[in-house]
Simulated scan of single mutants.
Amino acid sequence: MANGDRQDTAYTAVRVARLYYFQNMTTAAIAEEIGTSRATVSRLLSYAMDHGLVEIRVHDPQELSGNLEAAIKAHYGVRSIQVVPVPAAASEKEAMERVAAHAAAYVNSLVVPKTVIGLAWGNTLAAIADNLLPKHVHDVDVVQLNGSGTGEHIVNTFGESLVARFAQNYGARAHSFPVPAFFDYADTRTALWREKSIKSLRALQDRASILLFSIGAAETGSHVHTGGYLDKQDVQGIRKDGVVGDIATVFFRKDGSWHDVALNARSSGPDLDLFQRAAHSICVVSGKGKIPGLQAALVGGFINELVIDEPSARLLVEQQKTAAPALNKAGKQTR
């Protein structure tokens, strides 16, 4: 078998393995999706196992030249990219389900004793919670990264529920953050941040080795934009500041800058520097509407691991071809 043929076979085997093991698709469904026979799918699964492509989770030990993962990694300098196979004709709901299932399985593989998991609430995290695989691990903490209360109700069960569901899945300790997503006054946040209880919780956030989040964007109907968190003046303010997205209710611009965005002074979310320090800063993206925010977050260096649906990954790579080389957080070109 020629080297090119072996590479093609390996690439297809990895794709089939991901569909089979992460998406729980049948061999018949996979055969229909990639346009081959069930027998060929079975042979590809055997090939993946025989050649070490599959262990407990799916591995791609060699980045094949020209693939999406390699292209994104080269452009942005991200440590790990996982592109989830999704048909171009799939609905947004189906794409989200596949990406969430993949992300849930991946996070499971990372959780070990003494792990601290930091969660930013949102629609994507809710979908991941729906796909968690039970795994009890000793001495694990799950901490909420930003408050979820609205202007009318300081306690909003949306964020707390996600923390509780993740904690229950791992037999872990749950640490909610019962404060508003946005304070009315920056001085209120400054005063509260001096309280011992809040200092303790923020210290736990800082210790998190796994940070799990998505990109918030008005165009995608993210929960922060649809859940009554922002009033008309807030929306006008972030537009004036050139905001393209948020992580844990902290907003940033196209160039990744965020310190002087006015609304951030009232946000309960952590400084985005936290995401630059974490061992596993995992961004999960489903939907092309998140691409502008994702690009900015990558430029800002807030992501070191990305789980993304295939159509969105293709769009990201296409836009890279016409864009200037990206800069990492140190201000150096990543390619």
Rank of each mutant, 00 (worst) to 15 (best):
K93Y: 13
M49D: 11
P85A: 13
M1A: 13
V107S: 05
V14R: 04
A74K: 05
G300C: 04
N24D: 15
H102M: 12
G256K: 04
G269A: 12
G52M: 06
D141C: 14
S281D: 05
H175T: 01
Y170P: 00
L133R: 15
R194W: 10
G149E: 05
E152T: 15
R43K: 15
E305M: 04
S65D: 10
V140S: 11
P87E: 10
E55N: 11
A29Q: 15
P311M: 12
A279P: 02
A323G: 12
A28L: 12
L119A: 08
D8F: 11
E310F: 14
S281M: 09
A279N: 08
A181P: 02
S91G: 14
P270W: 08
L212A: 06
Y185H: 15
T188F: 07
N131I: 02
A13E: 01
H136N: 11
M25A: 10
D246V: 06
G293Q: 02
I72V: 15
R98I: 08
H75P: 03
N24L: 12
R266S: 04
A28Y: 09
S91P: 05
V107P: 00
L45S: 02
R335A: 13
V137F: 11
Q168K: 13
T36Y: 05
L263F: 07
D187L: 11
L110D: 03
L204K: 13
R335K: 14
H59W: 11
G159D: 00
K254H: 15
D187I: 12
A330M: 10
A313W: 01
A13F: 02
Y76V: 05
S286Y: 09
P134D: 14
L162P: 00
L125Q: 03
I198V: 15
Q82C: 14
F177V: 00
G221L: 05
K332E: 13
D139C: 14
R165W: 00
V16A: 09
R194Y: 11
I117T: 03
V317G: 03
V285S: 01
T124E: 07
I247V: 14
A90Y: 06
S176A: 15
G227V: 04
H175C: 06
S161D: 08
S46P: 03
I117G: 02
R38D: 12
G237W: 05
V285D: 00
D130L: 05
M96I: 07
S176G: 15
Q168S: 14
V250K: 06
C283I: 10
V284D: 03
R18W: 03
I247R: 00
R239L: 14
V16I: 15
R57M: 10
A218S: 09
V112W: 08
E310Y: 14
L132G: 04
L64M: 12
L45W: 04
V107F: 08
F22W: 09
A103R: 02
D60K: 10
S37H: 11
Y185M: 07
P311L: 09
